[in-house]
Amino acid sequence: MSWAWVEVKPNENDLMHPGHLACQGCGATIAARLALKVLGRKAVFVIPASCWSVIDGAWPQHALQIPVFHTAFETAAIAATGIRAALDMKGKHDVHVVAWAGDGGTFDIGLQALSGAAERNENIIYITYDNEAYMNTGIQRSSSTPLGAWTTTTPDERPEDKPKKNMMEILAAHRVPYAATASIAYPDDFIRKLKKATQVKGFRFIHLFSPCPPGWKMASNLSVRSARLAVETKIFPLYEIEDGEVYTITHWPKGLPVEEYFKLQGRFKPVLKDPDRLAYIQRYVETQWEKLVRLHEASHGYLPEEARATIRSAI
């Protein structure tokens, strides 16, 4: 028996070092690594209870090369606000204060503080890395869990029967200056959006799609592919909303059938066995997508050519 050694050297410019505690194929680590390429060293991460409470390392270890402030589950937005206030009082205006929260800490328990900070237009960047369930506690449903999915609290016999909460619409209703969806499978798109966010003042929100191989019952080499399929099936569209009103779709998907996305993941096994539910989900995705396309059209006054191919019904 022989061992293959791979020497892992941290890149000097990489602000996330090896030795973190994430699972293989974790989307949330790809997410942080990409985010820090944009944010640089003058950034603070505020991390509520979530996978990242663990990923960064146990005291006294710390995988990120920026200050990290851990906080309680429901307090990401307000703790970031508090840090921003202190730094502003000290005249340190050149720091990005970033709330870095999971979907549970954003869609569910953290929604109240998030709404407060968004409504007051606090000058922070809020990034939710969304893996669509409480993964850190072992895969329980959150209000981000998609229609048809298995989790330990929505077992195969009674899978998730409600669609994912639409956080972007909630943020849009707060009229925040910038909100965007992004995916770890589209790094250029994510980096462009985060750069744009850093140039805006006020409350900025990024909903970042971030697969979880163990939670989604899939192999760890499928993270990027599954994230890409979520976009190309129109399940997770890439778009941005400025001032709560101007909608821009930033990637026009191929419009693949939702099955293509579902069949990579064990969590959708119950849906794949249920043609009626599958058809229902496909219709639901089409309806949601059309609504979004119309918002894009209303915002810009026209649709690009590639948009038309993505819509089944005639516009």
Partner: peptide, 22 residues
């Protein structure tokens, strides 16, 4: 002065600002 939406957020804000040096 941060006018928050709950006492839970009031204390969370000042813990963070205190640790950030204010």
């Amino acid at each position: 002065f941060i006018t928050v939406e709950s006492e839970h957020s009031a204390i969370s804000a000042v813990i963070a600002s205190s640790l950030a040096g204010a």
